[in-house]
Computed example of a mutant assay.
Amino acid sequence: MTRTILVTGARRGIGAALAVGLAGPDVALVLHHLAAADEVAAVAEQCRAAGAQARVVEADLSAPAQVHSLAEAAGPVDVLVNNAARASNVWLDELSLAEWEATFAVNVTAPMLLSQALAAGMRRRGGGRIINVTSATVRMGGPSGPSYVSSKAALIGLTRALAHALGPDGTTVNALSPGAVRTEGERELAAGRPVDEAAQDAAILARQAVRRRLDPDDLVSTVRFLASPQSGAVTGQVIEVGGGLVLR
């Protein structure tokens, strides 16, 4: 039986790595993006090369109507990976209500709406898997701005509430908490200000037990397990993949 997997924010970075890592025979991937057709098309080709079916759907997750349209376009799914996120490095003294609400719309409301829309289909298919990508900044309090950190903390709360609500239907809900993963987004957040990459790497490695920078592929095996039938007894958990990132 073909398993259908929806990955939001699949155009690059963590989302692209997870999509390609989940690809294989008997898998049909729905790859979500926003205004990144060329990038996500390349990811779709990698998924097809791994033997999966792959199609692309564009949606602005800050707009509830488009979130519902994405769910309708995806159809019944077995696995939902809520990876798409809105970054926010706006500090408290400059933080507007609009910035706060825009961050929560993508990072919390959209995962809730997708889970709500797709849960019934998962139940009819005997249960499913929902994986929410949160962030180590929840535990650390930064370095991202308050709206991002707070939204990712709310996503953990949503994960636990959904696990409680959907468990009787055979659907598990877990959160993946990546550490300091080297992505295009990391470099973009540093744009416009001088960054000593060597010093930045040294500071990150000083907080990790594993003394190398992580990349998106480091997350794939964990998500494969959480998406698999073998993970049926694991739900409501936050799985940290951060190389032993610790507070000091």
Score class of each variant (00 low, 15 high):
D93Q: 10
M122D: 07
T222H: 08
A105F: 02
I204P: 06
V173M: 08
L95R: 09
V223K: 02
L205E: 03
T103S: 01
V40W: 05
A175L: 04
R160D: 00
A163H: 04
A202H: 07
G121S: 03
V27T: 11
S144M: 15
M122L: 09
A209D: 08
W100Y: 09
A117I: 11
D169R: 11
G121E: 04
A227T: 06
K152S: 00
R139L: 11
G167F: 00
G15K: 10
I131W: 11
G127S: 03
R123K: 14
A227F: 05
T222V: 14
R213G: 09
W91E: 14
A52C: 12
L80K: 10
A209N: 09
A44W: 10
R129P: 11
T235W: 00
Q230G: 14
L176R: 02
S115P: 12
V173A: 03
G242D: 13
V30N: 06
S228I: 03
A73S: 10
R212K: 06
T2H: 13
G192Y: 01
N89V: 14
S221T: 14
L29A: 02
A65Y: 09
P216T: 06
L214P: 00
V90Y: 12
L245V: 03
L18A: 08
I130V: 07
R211T: 13
V181P: 03
G185D: 08
R11E: 15
S88F: 04
R125Q: 10
A120H: 11
L34Q: 14
I239Y: 07
A59V: 07
L92S: 14
A190I: 06
M1I: 04
V210K: 05
T4Y: 02
T8E: 01
A23Q: 02
L97Q: 13
T137G: 05
P25H: 13
A54L: 08
F225I: 08
G51F: 04
V20I: 15
R212S: 08
E101Q: 13
Q230N: 14
G170T: 02
L29I: 05
M122G: 01
A102H: 04
G126C: 00
L247K: 14
T183H: 14
Y148N: 01
R125E: 05
